[in-house]
Simulated scan of single mutants.
Amino acid sequence: MESEGPPESESSEKSIFFSQQEEEEDDNEEEEESKEAEETATINPLLPPALTGDVEGLQKIFEDPENPHHDQAMQLLLEEDIVGRNLLYAACMAGQSDVIRALAKYGVNLNEKTTRGYTLLHCAAAWGRLETLKALVELDVDIESLNFQEERARDVAARYSQTECVEFLDWANARLALKKYIAKVSAIVTDTAKGPGKLFKEDKNTILSACRIKNEWLETHLEASINELFEQKQQLEDIVTPIFTKMATPRDTGSIPGPGRSHMPWSS
């Protein structure tokens, strides 16, 4: 079964994207000349600039109407190999972060999966391309996406002993957890249909103010540690939980009390 990450021999995995170039050095000169002519006609013209980091070369193909490959640029970019990998995967394997950023501007789906559920993030994690991982996370890819083995990119990085990638993705997950909690609490407070009960104006303002402060903290602390991210989330929980618990607790009206505490949708 073919692996999406680097196998014991990296050259075998790269062969789908690199074989045309490698074969030019293998056979005798006469056979090679014939082979080169045939392969030149079929090689994806986006591949050389993508592998070498030639961003300007790629941009010319996409943006210059006079370029012979301009009309087919997007088709060439999305052309897939036998396991569903397009040119972006080749750029990930080669660690060409600037190429990924440049191609993202043309509206490609950075969360597209291969036939076995691997994303670009899985690919970069498996190959230990830390800077490419950072670029993809900056571009808001789904870091929780699962492959056919129910693995996140972080799990794939761990499987291939890519320690720096594991540490970075742990940090990215901690940052995401805080962002998601802020969004969840804000949605509950602003949507009365989802709220756990009557919310006093003062309590509502307290929660929204706390969420705003945490969002501002995220924007100004881009290098915050995992522990600092966890602390910020805990601080917000300490503000939110007592208010929602009070709202969810049945009031004593002299009648028979209800069946106990209701479900708390704000919990993490």
Results as ranks from 00 to 15, higher is better:
residue 100 I to G: 02
residue 27 D to F: 14
residue 217 W to T: 04
residue 55 V to M: 07
residue 118 Y to S: 06
residue 253 T to F: 09
residue 160 Y to W: 15
residue 265 P to Q: 03
residue 24 E to L: 15
residue 49 P to F: 06
residue 72 Q to I: 06
residue 38 E to M: 10
residue 243 I to V: 12
residue 188 I to R: 00
residue 179 K to W: 04
residue 142 D to M: 08
residue 117 G to L: 11
residue 114 T to C: 10
residue 166 V to Q: 06
residue 96 Q to E: 10
residue 61 I to P: 05
residue 110 L to E: 05
residue 185 V to Q: 00
residue 217 W to E: 11
residue 180 K to M: 12
residue 32 E to H: 02
residue 89 Y to T: 03
residue 28 N to R: 10
residue 243 I to N: 00
residue 46 L to N: 03
residue 155 D to A: 09
residue 139 L to D: 04
residue 6 P to L: 15
residue 20 Q to W: 09
residue 26 D to M: 14
residue 146 L to M: 08
residue 44 N to Q: 07
residue 68 P to W: 08
residue 134 K to L: 05
residue 137 V to H: 01
residue 99 V to F: 05
residue 23 E to D: 15
residue 178 L to A: 07
residue 245 T to R: 11
residue 259 P to C: 14
residue 80 E to Q: 13
residue 135 A to Q: 04
residue 247 M to H: 02
residue 205 N to E: 14
residue 7 P to T: 07
residue 236 L to D: 03
residue 251 R to T: 13
residue 171 W to Q: 11
residue 73 A to T: 04
residue 19 S to K: 09
residue 174 A to E: 14
residue 62 F to Y: 10
residue 38 E to F: 03
residue 234 Q to I: 11
residue 221 H to G: 07
residue 52 T to I: 07
residue 231 E to F: 09
residue 246 K to R: 14
residue 44 N to C: 10
residue 36 E to A: 12
residue 225 S to A: 06
residue 132 T to D: 02
residue 264 M to T: 00
residue 66 E to F: 05
residue 212 R to L: 09
residue 97 S to L: 02
residue 239 I to E: 04
residue 239 I to T: 14
residue 188 I to G: 00
residue 32 E to K: 10
residue 55 V to P: 03
residue 111 N to S: 09
residue 181 Y to D: 05
residue 65 P to H: 06
residue 152 R to L: 08
residue 11 S to K: 13
residue 267 S to A: 15
residue 195 G to K: 03
residue 13 E to L: 14
residue 38 E to C: 05
residue 244 F to I: 00
residue 87 L to C: 01
residue 53 G to A: 12
residue 122 H to G: 03
residue 267 S to W: 12
residue 2 E to T: 06
residue 216 E to H: 06
residue 48 P to F: 06
residue 32 E to M: 14
residue 45 P to D: 08
residue 113 K to H: 08
residue 46 L to E: 05
residue 139 L to W: 07
residue 187 A to Q: 00
residue 59 Q to Y: 11
residue 134 K to R: 15
residue 36 E to K: 13
residue 217 W to N: 09
residue 243 I to T: 01
residue 249 T to Q: 10
residue 176 L to E: 12
residue 139 L to I: 07
residue 209 S to C: 11
residue 98 D to K: 11
residue 114 T to Y: 09
residue 8 E to C: 04
residue 40 T to Q: 09
residue 20 Q to N: 14
residue 93 M to H: 12
residue 260 G to P: 07
residue 196 P to V: 00
residue 119 T to G: 02
residue 107 G to K: 13
